[in-house]
Design a protein around this nucleic acid. Structure first.
Lengths: 97, 97
DNA sequence: ACCGCTATTCAGTGATACTATGTACTTGTA
DNA sequence: TACAAGTACATAGTATCACTGAATAGCGGT
């Protein structure tokens, strides 16, 4: 979600749909909103309310500096963890003993 | 941990050390044991207690059928999620609107 | 007797994922 | 004008999870 928001201002309902298009087909709105709430709480996003002509007002999120830093940290950790997991998957383990 | 155990019978303390060798240098024993407890609770492992000549008895874990199935499911999910995350990382998002 | 390494357990904290439900705005239509 | 359908957000509640810190204990060597 941080990455999705980093690509440009967006709002909860749209994030849900993007996740579904990405392949996470069973993501429901509730899940996404609990996460946007957390992003707010942790002050990783700036918020702007804009009215929509097809429904109730949308709450747009935009990464602030802290959010961008958090995203960078995420990607570093992702690189680390995913490389280790793939290493574990492919390689024989060294067994001491 | 399921994958590590699947490579052959092992016990908590040794798993901790293997994880550290893998690069997860700050893993402490407490963390590993809470997970082994969960594996027990969920009946994914068979257990055998064996005495050691360098310390207290070791509790060896071995994946049972349910554990192997769980591990397969894990790897399927890992393939799915990691490919999606990497896709998200590398690709421009399609923006409707 | 005690230190250091080996080895397990458990109580407690805080974060996280997810669901279910409720609310509300807009457009189209029967 | 009632209501269905799509859009949009909020939140209480449940279950799980990750991690820490502290306690306990067995063994070998000094």
């Amino acid at each position: 979600m941080l990455e999705i928001i980093s690509r440009g201002e967006t709002y909860g309902y749209e994030i849900t749909q993007q996740l579904r298009e990405l392949g996470f087909t069973d993501v429901v709105e509730g899940t996404v909103y609990t996460i946007t709430m957390r992003l707010e709480k942790n002050k990783l996003v700036d918020i702007e309310k804009k009215k929509s002509n097809v429904g109730p007002p949308r709450k747009f999120y935009k990464l602030n500096t802290a959010g961008q830093e958090r995203l960078e940290v995420f990607w570093e950790r992702w690189e680390f963890v995913s490389s280790k997991i793939n290493e574990l998957k492919s390689k024989e383990i060294q067994r001491r003993r």
